[in-house]
Nucleic acid binder design. Structure first.
Lengths: 148, 148
DNA sequence: CCACGATAGTCCGATATTCGGACGACATTA
DNA sequence: TAATGTCGTCCGAATATCGGACTATCGTGG
């Protein structure tokens, strides 16, 4: 790295396992016939259980509304999500996960669990728990969209 | 999230602070007149002190050689990096950081430090140290390109 | 209750990004 | 030296992304 001082910086250390997990999930989905591009996956992952608004997803993913719109178009064309009217706001439409989309979720869960188990085997139970707690604490001050 | 079981999954927990840090650094650079796009920054960040090969960077960033080539073109056009012949292999060229590029690094360091300090203030010294150690340990099993 | 600014999503067109395939130059091995 | 693999680049097509503008709807102050 050019940034030797940033060599052991937390940024990269956070990113490496993140990408590892992400790649593993995508590979698993692909092996089951679901070939989801990364950008679509990143959006899909953030859809709330009851559906999410477009602008909301765009802000979370830090991309423009138009870009997000086209990504949702693709997810809709391939049947993973659907746009439904928002009962509370006639302007808005909620992006919701279809049954086929839920399949993706179901397939991902065991993959994630397996990797987390491998990590726990490497770190030990206590340190894993600590890690999760610390990251959750960090979220409080780094997630502009923290949940209530 | 649709993946409720993945709700408190480590993936997202890792990503959130990572992106926070990344955004902060990019914003700081921008405020100093260096407007670096995200894709360029992600590549730049991985250039080794003595220079890195193109294919090496491409694999680390998980993008094609051609794509990486065009990103390096841009970084070179804006003067942050330079391609120099690899003394050990006449086929290869090393992507190296210029003086102007080093400026980016120098500007980033205090930003990173400041954020890490804020995190430490939130987590406490011990938990921060533990966090860093755990992440480093995780790197051993998640980074295909770990350093010796 | 109703104008009026703000907001949600979409359409359009221009630009940028990314990739697959193929290529010459060089390295490595036999 | 010949054969094979690797390194980076060029080309062209497909895709992604964005800025700007537009319609429909909301919510609020008068």
């Amino acid at each position: 790295m050019p940034d030797d001082a940033a060599e052991d910086n937390l940024g990269l250390l956070l990113f490496i396992p993140y990408r590892f997990l992400e790649s593993a999930v995508l590979a698993a989905l692909k092996s089951h016939g679901h070939d989801i591009p990364l950008n679509q996956a990143r959006v899909f992952q953030r859809i709330a259980p009851g559906g999410s608004r477009l602008a909301e997803l765009a802000e979370a993913a830090q991309i423009s509304k138009q870009t997000l719109g086209s990504i949702v178009d693709q997810l809709e064309r391939t049947g993973y999500v659907r746009r439904v009217p928002d009962p509370h706001d006639a302007r808005a439409r909620l992006v919701t996960v279809t049954a086929k989309g839920r399949e993706l979720v179901e397939l991902s869960i065991p993959v994630i669990r397996r990797i987390e188990a491998a990590w726990e085997a490497h770190l030990g139970r206590d340190r894993t728990r600590e890690l999760r707690q610390s990251l959750a604490a960090l979220r409080e001050i780094t997630d502009p969209y923290a949940k209530p």
